[in-house]
Amino acid sequence: MTFVRPNFRHPENHSNEIGYSIKNYEGALSTLCAGCGHDSISAAIIKACFDLNLEPHKIAKISGIGCSSKTPTYFLGKAHGFNSVHGRMPSVTTGANMANRDLLYLGVSGDGDTASIGMGQFAHVVRRNLNMVYIVMNNGCYGLTKGQDSATADKGSASKKGVPSLFDSIDLCQLALQLGAGMVARSFSGDKQQLIPMVKAAIKHPGFAFIDVVSPCVTFNNTPQSTKGYEWVRDHLDATGTIDFIPSQSEITIDYPVGSSRKVTLHDGSELYLQKNNEDYDLTSRKAAMNRIETVKEQQKILTGLIYHNETELDTHGKIATVEKPLNALSKQELCPGSGVLDRLNSQLR
């Protein structure tokens, strides 16, 4: 019986620049179904944080309810975590972010948690451009309650039960674009080469970074008729371009033919290299991104890759002009300056 993961790791898999081994970024052994796409996303998050030399205790994982929202137990066991109420991950994250802006906020949600019960919360956290990474593990069904179609199940797509979905699906990337997210991307749990650099870029992006990850539910929604099964997704991928993430101050070893790639410099000096494909478009144009999603959808395909990227907007803290210092680090004197200050403030309003 092995409910425990062995403690040995590959002896040649060395620690990262801050001296942590990959084990320091792992969590408990997953209790999700064998083959669940969510586990692959967890693995990608672990790898991205390891590679970026992040300190696990400077990360907060926040989730709602659902299979997806269980996953924070399975990665970054040394980070902070809050498994919140169904669909309420955005408000809990907003609160935490307001209190301590120094942590990295990793919000994990599912298609049910985001596109159904949490839709209202989702819309507003995007609109406010909260500085966080928002990952949706999107399997098109309610896995935890035996696989009913979710709001992201495509019309006509059939899960294990065999009944095609009657309703049009919600495209979360389009929604995020419309609501003003700074970074919008889509990936597939079975494509770590794309997913890992994408998670890294999202972590480095200041403001709201949204990744919709198609993540097959092996138990309920991995049929040949399902548009969220491994086979269908693999056969219908259309990437905006191959991504490589280059952390700041590191040597660039990838050699792209001239004119075939585009460089996106992030605020901290990190760079994203995107290998262009034939249908290249302006990544900073919301309109172009919308167009591209729609065009690909018409071809019965799924657009993956970095879809939109724009760092110009201020995040929530910037917009409401909070203090630089995290609120939880302010002294009592700073938080409660006394009745004299209050009087002065009140007199200004009279």
Binding site: P6, R9, D39, S40, A43
Partner: peptide, 13 residues
């Protein structure tokens, strides 16, 4: 089905 579950879980890569 190439779900990568084995690749992800393998403690020694």
């Amino acid at each position: 089905i190439e779900c990568d579950a084995c690749e992800d879980i393998c403690p020694v890569d």
